[in-house]
């Protein structure tokens, strides 16, 4: 077994009055690609938000650790600086802040030092070329007026630039056409290496075809009910979740 990156133990999380995660366990090692699948309302997005300690979710019980360090109650920005990234389903629009300035600022914060402008620009340009993002797009205000596909590509661009240890992709593939899914998969492949890991949250198996997936987890009613290989995703595609429900 590879070195542990993320470890979720017996996690119970509620949003308001409603309990969503009910004893979740998950372990992700370096160099691995994990997928969480599950029906609507099973707790997929809650898992991602809980890792990031979203203020609207309360942790009742259990723990989350990153490289052995407890991050259960760390603040969102600290978790980000420790090397976790999340691609949002609905990225927020920030008027007046250009993509370039935002990325530069975020990278300064994440790396804890001032990025070298020249290197930064080169790296940004290279990644944009790979993802097919037009040059002028980075002068636009972050996510403002971006189409669904542009927003998702921009999330992937951020992932590549911030180079986290663990990237959580929450429904990054939903609502995208075939070309955009291909671009997103390409971004993930560019990012992926032996020392980092990816956690993909999806209900769609298309994106999994072009990626080497190590583990597929089925999340039902706040708990992982089955863990298997990539084949499990195919099974779900054909048969749905009925077998695992109730």
């Amino acid at each position: 077994m590879s070195e542990k990156l993320l470890e979720i133990k017996d996690l119970y999380v509620s949003a308001g009055e409603k309990e969503i995660l009910k004893g979740m366990n998950l372990s992700i090692g370096k160099g691995e690609v994990h997928v969480i699948m599950g029906p609507n309302g099973s707790g997929k997005t809650t898992t991602a938000n809980a890792i990031f300690n979203h203020p609207e979710y309360q942790k009742i019980k259990g723990s989350i650790s990153l490289e052995g360090e407890d991050i259960t109650n760390s603040k969102t920005d600290e978790i980000a600086r420790k090397g976790v990234f999340m691609s949002f389903q609905l990225p927020e629009e920030i008027p007046g802040v250009s993509v370039t300035n935002f990325l530069k600022y975020a990278k300064n914060k994440i790396t804890g030092k001032n990025v070298k402008i020249f290197e930064f620009k080169n790296e940004l340009q290279k990644n944009m070329d790979e993802l097919g993002i037009p040059k002028e797009a980075v002068d636009r205000s972050l996510n403002v007026g971006f189409s669904g596909g542009e927003k998702k590509k921009n999330e992937i661009l951020q992932m590549l630039m911030l180079n986290p240890k663990l990237a959580i992709l929450d429904e990054t593939d939903s609502g995208l056409d075939v070309d955009a899914i291909r671009t997103v998969s390409k971004g993930i492949q560019m990012y992926k290496n032996e020392n980092n890991a990816v956690l993909i949250i999806t209900h769609n198996t298309k994106i999994l075809k072009s990626l080497k997936v190590d583990y597929v987890h089925i999340l039902v009613d706040g708990k992982i009910v089955k863990t298997g290989s990539a084949a499990l995703a195919t099974e779900i595609e054909n048969e749905g979740y009925a077998k695992y429900k109730g």
Binding site: F52, H54, P55, K75, T76, D77, I79, A80, R81, F85, M86, F88, P91, E92, I94, P95, G96, V97, F102, Y105, A106, K109, I110, S141, Q158, L162
Partner: peptide
């Protein structure tokens, strides 16, 4: 929350939004 998930502290996030 979105900005904090990119490593900005709450103060930095608010300042960035206001500057924008």
């Amino acid at each position: 929350f979105y900005l904090m998930s990119r490593g900005l502290s709450e103060e930095d996030a608010k300042a960035m939004i206001v500057r924008g």
